[in-house]
Design a binder for these strands. Structure first.
Lengths: 336, 336
DNA sequence: TTGTAGGCGTTATCAG
DNA sequence: CTGATAACGCCTACAA
């Protein structure tokens, strides 16, 4: 029923060891023997059992991806990048998402044990801290969009502070003296950094810091919706909105349009991430480009390096990617 | 270094067989023994090797997902649905995407061999036909968004014809006598069905069939962009556009806005899929709701059923989901 | 260059 | 109820 290495060996008139050597290019094999083995293998449609191979080599050729959820274009872009890089190196992808609370994450972590050679973890919420204690020892790992103070894991982040600072400054330079911010999730590191950048830009421009201008949000379109209602009720009304991500900016645009507030004439709007759709909405969204799929690719490369160097005691490095301002029309800039 | 079942057995003063029985609830074990074993296992942080288990049970607790690509919100929604259903049943997800040509798909198929208990395949392009011949024998599988005439695989599709028909009819009923269609990819089954539904609605309304109104597309925003340029050049200009998916509709809206064509006053626009963002763009997009993540969930349930019944020779069934019209403002309807 | 045989960590089949 | 022990399919010294 299932064709094993023994079948190939028997059929080719050699030992299993030889077949193994041929198929893995390990050890020397006579050329004729090799050709014959290969041919038989193909003929029999033999394909080695990954499980058996894993059992003995303790390697799975698989990398695990832990995501908080799969909602929206952001995470699918990340996965796309990861998948590309992984595929290039012959690695497979074990994806696990929706880890709302701690116990779910612990379960997921446990589930990865023995199934992957390394892990890409995107858990921006700070309780990652404690959770990573449940992670299998010596498993190579790369943190994306989060750094842990307590443990020096290799990590990949973008410079959220810088991006937010520059975007806010851009708005200010365009004459907006009251810029509202729709914040990201409360315990999210990236959200915190973006808020910090926003505040710093205001301060450096010697604009007053008004807590009323900082509206709560959670990175969903619906949150953008709700936030706008609050903002429009503000007195005096701000003339610009900086949403901590594009999804919220899009939600905001939607409500502004309903309310008959013209963008950008009466209200400038900007987001963060530059998800692919940002350029297609109306008006095209000014935002901060993260290079989302590139982020996934870089993370994967970093992880693969970590996997191949496992044990050679490299110091884990933290890379910070520089984001780029993308000025489109939603902020009222002249140039597209 | 790595704690195995033997370690637990030794520490608990029993045989590995007993430990195995305890951990799998197979066979009878004295209560005291069981408790002790469990405790030791927890203490030692023992976790069974999936590979070893797979080797003997020939089951992986993993389902494979084959996608054409990961671009846009559609596929991430599908994965979300799959992930939810799989997670509920304790299954893991091996994801593989970007299968442009045949050889890539064959590689991916081979890679899944021995790593998964079943496969969800979303390859709408019709050359799936030949490709499925490379698929491991007796591997449970569910086709999504595609049916193969030649092989009676279990499949899950939505009624693309019906959805397109009803949407087109709705546009006609609103007074549009010239409705342009932006078509999907050439060899895509769903695209074909949607086109068929569009044509049938025109015919039933006794409107002339004008090939010029059928513009080529490929399901990307950029294609929507390009198509609109063609449509605007048409003489006489149609008053409505039906894009074969939401992404193209969004691309179309973007260009219409650039061109100063008001939607829906001067041009009605509608899409297909109801991706989550459709309700948030301006104007909110009239479309056909597919229930994308539900599609993923259903597919997974179907597959899991197939896995557990494997060998009991069930006849593969084809389910067809009925889509639902979602009237929003982009088509000029009064009601939101 | 090739073959033999041990072992990877589990589960499952027998006896006790 | 419990314990040996034989698979599962493969890789890899070690011998020849």
């Amino acid at each position: 029923m299932k064709v094993t290495i023994r079948d190939v060996a028997r059929e080719a008139g050699v030992s299993v060891a030889t077949v193994s050597r041929v198929l893995n290019n390990s050890g020397p094999v006579h050329e004729l023997t090799r050709d014959r083995v290969r041919q038989i293998a193909r003929l029999l449609r033999y394909s080695p059992s990954p499980a058996a191979r894993t059992l003995i080599t303790s390697t799975t050729q698989t990398i695990g991806v832990l995501l908080p959820n799969l909602y929206g274009e952001f995470f699918s872009e990340v996965i796309r990048g990861i998948d590309q890089a992984a595929q290039r190196s012959g690695f497979h992808l074990l994806v696990s998402s929706s880890h709302a609370d701690r116990s779910e994450l612990e379960t997921a972590l446990r589930a990865m044990r023995g199934r992957v050679d390394g892990l890409i973890v995107m858990i921006p919420d700070i309780d990652a801290e404690a959770l990573l204690e449940n992670l299998p020892a010596r498993l190579p790992i790369v943190l994306v969009s989060a750094v842990l103070e307590s443990h020096p894991f290799p990590s990949l982040t973008i410079d959220n502070y810088e991006g937010a600072y520059r975007l806010t400054r851009h708005l200010i330079e365009r004459g907006h003296s009251a810029v509202a911010m729709i914040k990201g999730s409360e315990r999210n590191q990236e959200a915190g950094e973006r808020l910090r950048g926003y505040r710093a830009a205001l301060r450096d421009a010697e604009l007053p810091h008004d807590p009323k201008l900082e509206i709560a949000g959670d990175f969903t379109e619906a949150a953008g919706d709700r936030a706008v209602a609050e903002i429009l009720a503000l007195e005096p009304r701000p003339s610009a909105i900086f949403a901590a991500n594009d999804a919220m900016a899009i939600g905001a645009l939607s409500v502004l349009r309903e309310a008959g507030v013209r963008v950008p004439e009466e209200m400038a709007v900007a987001g963060f991430d530059d998800i692919p759709i940002a350029r297609y909405i109306s008006p095209p969204l000014t935002t901060v480009r993260v290079g989302i799929s590139a982020l996934g690719e870089r993370a994967t490369q970093k992880l693969l390096r970590g996997i191949s160097e496992a044990g050679s005691g490299q110091t884990p490095t933290s890379e910070v990617l520089r984001p780029e301002l993308v000025i489109r029309r939603s902020c009222g800039a002249r140039r597209v």
